[in-house]
Write a protein that binds this DNA or RNA. Structure first.
Lengths: 171, 171
DNA sequence: ATAGATGCAAATATTTTGCCGCCAG
DNA sequence: CTGGCGGCAAAATATTTGCATCTAT
């Protein structure tokens, strides 16, 4: 049941941060921190709170919003301020290191972030149970090429979010 | 320069509402109002303010946010309240008559709305000049079918937003 | 030493809610 | 007539900004 599409079931964000850890293939960054390395290479100043925030985002197994990031960061070091979370998110966005998602605003108006790897993917959400999974497809890559050609645009970011009812929730 | 892809250049939302009126093919609802007709058929009560709001949305040549809708509505009848705009948007969403877009939050956190026709389309935005155009493609339809199959989901809504730099802005 | 980062408080921006009087059907 | 609808004020949610202080380099 997959073929082209990769998948990773991910729980919807909740205030109570608990991982589902669906095991393998979450993404692929472990100890040193991809984000931290990237910023360092760009000569960005690495402060105590940045290190913590980057670690949180690097190790997140699901899409976190600002609030969830803050919560996790504070478990590591309570001296992290909410404003710093927003400023760090902004820094990472400006450097093109993370993607901002809305996940169809299933639970409010906030944004979710993911440290984006090399491959684009689609977010597929069940409107009933809230599960979100990621999906990659060659067709998607083809579609983007078509858009670039036909619209004469050079694409730098994409966001595809699909909502519907999953197998379980249809029964 | 088109083929599969339909296109319609649309200005980015601005406080000062002025239409670009790129002429033909904006969508396809004129006088009586597709939205109004749809609600009437469903037996929804049609109040003075609803009629106005539906007219505004039916005749919009570009994607409007709540504020722009209010502004236009007030030009027709100043007795329309902001809260009513939100409640009407909610009504239309619940009835599946409009789509909610973020347009990549090019200008803030607000949402944009469009009275959706039968065909899904992709929103392609230039990150520099802010122009948004719509794009339809058979490939997109195929992709959705693939997602339904591979993810076992029954898709009820999709949102694809693409950002990049258009021909003019690359020069 | 110093440019840039953080903390704190307050401001913004956007959307939602409670309550009560009003109007479309 | 009456139940849903709209107005108003206030709350809620999400994010940003000004300014003084601190710190990584």
């Amino acid at each position: 049941m997959d073929g082209l599409g990769n998948s990773a079931s991910i729980d919807m964000p909740t205030a109570s941060a608990h991982r589902v850890s669906s095991g393998e293939r979450i993404h692929a960054h472990e100890r040193p921190g991809r984000l931290q390395a990237a910023l360092q290479k760009r000569g960005v100043r690495l402060t105590r709170q940045r290190r913590i925030l980057l670690e949180v985002m690097d190790n997140a197994e699901r899409h976190l919003d600002a609030d969830a990031i803050l919560e996790r960061a504070r478990k590591l070091d309570s001296r992290v301020h909410r404003v710093t979370v927003y400023r760090t998110i902004d820094l990472l966005k400006r450097n093109g290191l993370i993607d901002e998602l809305d996940l169809l605003h299933l639970r409010g108006g906030q944004h979710f972030y993911e440290s984006h790897g090399p491959r684009d993917h689609i977010h597929v959400a069940c409107l009933k149970c809230g599960k979100v999974r990621e999906f990659e497809s060659r067709l998607y890559e083809k579609l983007k090429k078509q858009i670039e050609q036909d619209c004469g645009i050079e694409i730098t970011m994409t966001r595809t979010e699909v909502g519907g009812y999953c197998e379980k929730c249809r029964k």
